[in-house]
Write a protein that binds this DNA or RNA. Structure first.
Length: 430
RNA sequence: GUGCCUAUAGCUUAGUGGUAAAGCUCUGCCCUGUGGAGGCAGCGACGAGAGUUCAAUUCUCUCUAGGCACCCCA
């Protein structure tokens, strides 16, 4: 038709628009999660979405590692990154006021993060995450608390025990065992091997073998394969590791408060700043057997600020995977407007009367929207229904004359006559 | 970054080598102070570019966008 170039209506790649019904879902998730977190005594904090890039470079100790960040130069030639995670930022905040904060310190935040990745199921470029961290507790109590916090959040969202499982591990055990089995000191090879082992069962066997050969070379890869088949002897190796006892201890302590956790010595978290227990919550749905969220202990992260080590345990729970989880379990509530009552007007002559009533009812605590459209009354009711507003009152000659209103419940279709003072208790019964 | 799949109206889909159908939505009308129903009418689309062809929405290629998997996953 015309050559006019239209700007795309799509949101930027990997980000989402939150229409009211979408935001309602988001709020449902994080209102629940935030309430539970506060029940555990966590205080909310925040930081800027912008951080100096060096914060993330320093953490890994390698310059090139963060290919997946939104980084750019600002107008003053500063290297800036949109935060891809919260942990370095909270570590910075804690490090800065280390001596004046009161420990154990329990902080949480619900914020958005950016990662420059190819979007796919469960992963977008912008996501929202609840982060909860406890600082200053060396003992296993911190892990118990953080994991039970995650557990209680899941329950508060309506998940049942059988909907998810909790896996725990102690960071570094597998590497130690591999070094022993393979008589291999090359850290890089060990790390590569661990990543391949992590794919076991998720990729075809042939591909698995190929990658293992790739990581280790044919000979050692064969040794490892034989070992992996010999469950008992490999188990023995893990049993020798004192850190396994810590896992068992944690598992037992969780059990006493009714939380089942599985020790999985093959569980790994992507990054290696974890110094102790790591854990992940998994969806048990066979069609969506993915990690929902996880965390662990990171006692040495304050190093990068030149501070001494500080015991810290935390986790991050993202909206994308949780929303998929709740959707697949049918746990998301039906959208309902926060507006309590819609005032329909028979004609523009009654706008003023409707506004007076609205003003009166708002002062009594109700959320009221008034129609100014001059549409037919039936259409106005249809609009209220479409917005999922639960009640309507039509304002016309009769109402103005008698000061009585027909309050209509759009869910039941029932109507009753009320006066202006009775509306509140009908719309929001105590 | 690599691979595979997809692209038709605001949404969900149908269909064809001769420019396209339906449902929902939307707009208007009928009706109209109990109406959110029904009836009628209407708006509105083949992602972009190139090639093959008399003719391309349809076949081919490129691009773009989206989905999924890999990589990675702090």
């Amino acid at each position: 038709m015309n050559k006019k170039q239209n700007i795309s209506k799509e949101p930027y790649k990997g980000t989402r628009d939150f229409y009211p019904e979408d935001l309602a879902v988001q709020n449902f998730i994080f209102d629940k999660a935030g309430q539970i977190t506060e029940k555990f005594g966590y205080e909310e904090y925040n930081t800027s979405v912008l951080e100096p890039t060096e914060l993330y470079k320093a953490k890994s100790g390698e310059e090139i590692i963060n290919e997946q960040t939104y980084s750019f130069m600002d107008r003053g030639e500063r290297d800036v990154t949109l935060r891809p995670e919260m942990t370095p930022s909270i570590a910075r905040m804690v490090a800065k006021r280390k001596r004046e904060l009161a420990y154990p310190l329990r902080w949480y935040s619900i914020q958005n993060f950016f990662r420059y990745e190819r979007p796919q199921k469960g992963r977008l470029r912008e996501f929202w995450q609840l982060n909860a961290d406890i600082f200053g507790v060396e003992g296993i109590e911190a892990e118990v608390e953080i994991i039970s916090l995650g557990y209680e959040i899941m329950k508060s969202l309506g998940a049942k025990d059988e909907d998810f499982e909790i896996k725990i591990n102690y960071s570094g055990m597998l590497a130690k065992v591999l070094r022993e089995i393979l008589n291999e000191e090359d850290e890089e090879k060990i790390n590569k091997t661990i990543k391949v082992i992590d794919r076991f069962g998720k990729i075809p066997e042939e591909e698995f073998n190929k990658r293992l050969d790739d990581a280790l070379g044919g000979e050692k890869s064969q040794i490892l394969k034989n070992k992996l088949d010999d469950k008992d002897s490999i188990k023995e190796l893990f049993e020798k590791d004192p850190n396994l006892q810590i896992c068992k201890d944690l598992k037992n302590k969780l059990e006493t408060i009714g939380i089942q956790a599985k020790i999985d010595v093959y569980l790994i978290r992507g990054f290696d700043y974890y110094t102790g227990i790591v854990f992940e919550f998994f969806d048990t749905n066979p069609d969506n057997n993915r990690s929902l969220f996880g965390g662990g202990r990171y006692d040495k992260l304050l190093d990068i600020f030149g501070e001494e080590k500080m015991p810290a345990v935390g986790f991050g729970m993202g909206d994308v995977t949780i929303k998929d989880f709740l959707e697949s379990r049918n746990l998301l509530p039906q959208y309902q407007s926060k507006t309590d009552l819609y005032l329909c007007t028979l004609s523009s002559d009654y706008f003023e009367n409707a506004n007076q009533l609205a003003d009166n009812l708002r002062k009594q605590g109700l959320n009221i929207a008034v129609n100014y459209s001059n549409k037919k009354i039936g259409d106005q009711i249809a609009i209220a229904d479409k917005k999922r507003i639960p009640f309507v009152i039509c304002i016309g000659e009769n109402e103005v004359k008698n000061n009585k209103y027909q309050l209509k419940n759009l869910q039941t279709g029932e109507e009753q006559e009320v006066d202006g003072q009775e509306v509140v208790k009908e719309v929001r019964p105590q």
